[in-house]
Computed example of a mutant assay.
Amino acid sequence: MARIKAQDAGWRGSAEGWLQAAYEALKEAGIDAVRVMPLAKRLNLSRTSFYWFFEDREQLLAALIARWRDKNTGSLLRQSESYAESISEAALNVFECWLNPEMFDSQFEFAVRSWALQSPEVSQEVAAADQARLAGLAAMFRRFGAEPEVADARARTLYLTQIGYITMNTREEAVERFQRIPHYVTIFTGKAPKRRELDRFYGKFGYAQTDPGVFVPLADTFEEAVSE
């Protein structure tokens, strides 16, 4: 992988540059790879330049956890609170997290959960994130009329299924996942998603469903419409 370029802060790099290097190293090789000297080599900077921005490695690790919390937990909670006309559409809002790494980084999630196996402090962070995410999802179900016990069970079913995907390091092509999504929504919410809800969801990722289980890039459907 290409080395991360130092940010525009002269020979010392920048706090964001060091953090980005740590983030990439964590995802690639785990927490043991997140050390000052290897990061300095990755950035082509001196080891001492690190200390212009961080007091020590622990402060850098805390910044990594903050990034994970803000990105993954923050995105999931925002999506669970997004406007929706039905519970199935609300679930599809959350599903955007699973397909958009800019919104929810599954590799980052896997790396942090692996790190938690070695660190009681990080394990506590993960447990707190899990509780916050489950609470947000349960609130989403209650918003659409579910009783508290039902909302809790449905939230757990939805969330723990996705955490299973992540911890098992499951790989699916987007189209393969699309084929399962209507069934997942029905199982998780008890309501089958409407075609227009699914069309909006697929469209956000640049696809259209032409027949059941058949997906094509939107650019192809546009070209077909123009040629007719």
Results as ranks from 00 to 15, higher is better:
Gln107Lys: 10
Arg133Asp: 01
Glu96Cys: 10
Leu160Ala: 04
Leu160Thr: 13
Val185His: 01
Val112Ser: 01
Ile87Asn: 03
Gln131Ser: 05
Ser123Trp: 05
Leu137Asn: 01
Ala135Gly: 08
Pro120Gly: 00
Gly145Gln: 10
Leu117Lys: 15
Glu81Thr: 10
Ala151Pro: 01
Ala127Arg: 07
Phe141Met: 08
Pro120Gln: 11
Ser106Asp: 10
Pro120Thr: 13
Gln131Gly: 11
Glu147Arg: 09
Phe95Asp: 12
Ala151Glu: 02
Ala146Cys: 13
Gln162Glu: 14
Leu158Ala: 14
Glu147Ser: 06
Arg113Ser: 14
Val175Pro: 04
Val150Thr: 11
Glu96His: 06
Met168Glu: 14
Ile166Arg: 00
Ala111Val: 08
Phe110Arg: 00
Arg78Gly: 03
Phe104His: 02
Arg171Tyr: 08
Ala127Phe: 03
His183Val: 12
Asp105His: 02
Leu76Ala: 06
Asp105Val: 03
Ala111Thr: 10
Leu158Arg: 02
Ser75Thr: 15
Tyr83Pro: 10
Asp152Lys: 09
Gln79Glu: 11
Glu121Asn: 09
Val94Pro: 00
Phe104Cys: 04
Glu121Ala: 10
Ser114Asp: 15
Tyr184Cys: 03
Glu149Ala: 11
Leu76Met: 15
Thr157Asn: 08
Ala91Tyr: 04
Gln131Arg: 11
Glu81Gln: 15
Val175Lys: 04
Gly145Met: 07
Glu172Ala: 12
Pro148Phe: 08
Glu173Phe: 06
Thr161Trp: 15
Arg180Ser: 04
Ala128Cys: 04
Asn93Trp: 07
Tyr184Asn: 06
Ala127Gly: 12
Tyr165Gln: 13
Ser86Lys: 10
Val150Ser: 09
Ala151Val: 02
Glu109Gly: 05
Gln107Arg: 13
Asp130Val: 02
Ala138Met: 00
Leu160Lys: 08
Arg171Met: 13
Arg156Tyr: 00
Gln124His: 14
Glu172His: 13
Glu121Met: 02
Leu158Cys: 05
Ser82Gln: 12
Ser86Ile: 09
Arg180Gln: 11
Leu76Ile: 15
Glu172Arg: 14
Thr167Gly: 02
His183Phe: 11
Ala84Trp: 05
Asn169Ile: 14
Asn100Asp: 15
Glu173Arg: 01
Val175Ile: 11
Ile181Asp: 09
Glu81Gly: 01
Gln124Ser: 13
Phe178Gln: 02
Ala146Thr: 07
Glu85Ala: 06
Gly74Ala: 07
Leu92Asn: 07
Gln162Gly: 05
Ala84Thr: 11
Ala111Pro: 01
Gly136Phe: 04
Gln107Phe: 13
Met103Lys: 07
Asp130Leu: 12
Ala129Phe: 07
Phe178Asp: 05
Ala155Pro: 04
Ala174Leu: 08
Val94Gly: 03
Met103Ala: 09
Ile87Ser: 00
Ser86Trp: 03
Ser114Val: 14
Gln107His: 13
Cys97Glu: 03
Ser82Trp: 00
Ser86Val: 12
Val122Ile: 15
Leu137Tyr: 05
Ser80Met: 12
Thr167Tyr: 06
Ala127Gln: 09
Met140Lys: 05
Ala155Gly: 02
Ala135Arg: 01
Ala84Gly: 05
Gln179Trp: 08
Gln118Glu: 15
Leu117Cys: 15
Glu149Leu: 11
Glu173Ile: 03
Asn93Glu: 07
Leu76His: 04
Gly136Trp: 12
Gly145Phe: 07
Ala153Thr: 05
Ser86Glu: 06
Asn93Val: 08
Gln118Asn: 14
Glu102Phe: 11
Asp130Thr: 09
Gly74Tyr: 12
Ile87His: 03
Tyr159His: 03
Gly145Pro: 01
Arg78Cys: 09
Ala90Ser: 10
